[in-house]
Design a binder for these strands. Structure first.
Lengths: 84, 84
DNA sequence: GAGAATTTGTACGTATGTATG
DNA sequence: ACATACATACGTACAAATTCT
């Protein structure tokens, strides 16, 4: 799946939908985490800001959570994790 | 006490808190020094860089001081800490 | 003193967080 | 939405200093 630059749907929404589907398909079940933002940026041909907005959406949905300098993990954020 | 990899509190902060508590409990009173960085690294399952940042914090607090290739000692750095 | 082992020091690479235009 | 720059966090590799055999 790829984002469509001509589609009027915001890129970050398109990307969020793609990632959401991939997660539900178990694509990242092995590592338990998403690829780095830079990787996703190059992979999908969008800016890092767009990648981050997409991940933000998935975080709000409780699908993933990120920890600074470590990465974005699949699943709900543990109760004692303080960052956003 | 152990660091929590899923807690988003920086690992070096978690480790600093652990070491600070252990020092105050007198855990290292006997030797008067901290274990080596490699030991702490394996003991707590973090990288050496994280260990060093934790020790850096304790040093800034005046709780310990480090001498190159010798180790990290409990207490405030003496004026002539380099000589033997 | 020589050489190996141990310990701390420094540099660099990668990842996410924040700010600006 | 994108680009860039910088900050913070974590890790790895190599270098330097000290100690031990």
């Amino acid at each position: 799946m790829k984002v469509d630059q001509r589609d009027s749907t915001p890129l970050h929404e398109q990307l969020a939908a793609i990632l959401r589907a991939e997660i539900n398909e178990g694509k990242y079940a092995e590592s338990g985490m998403l690829p780095s933002e830079s990787y996703l940026q190059q992979e999908h041909g969008v800016s890092r800001g767009t990648v981050r907005r997409a991940i933000e959406t998935l975080t709000a949905e409780g699908l993933v959570f990120t920890i600074a300098a470590r990465g974005t993990f699949i699943g709900k954020r543990p109760p004692d994790a303080k960052s956003r």
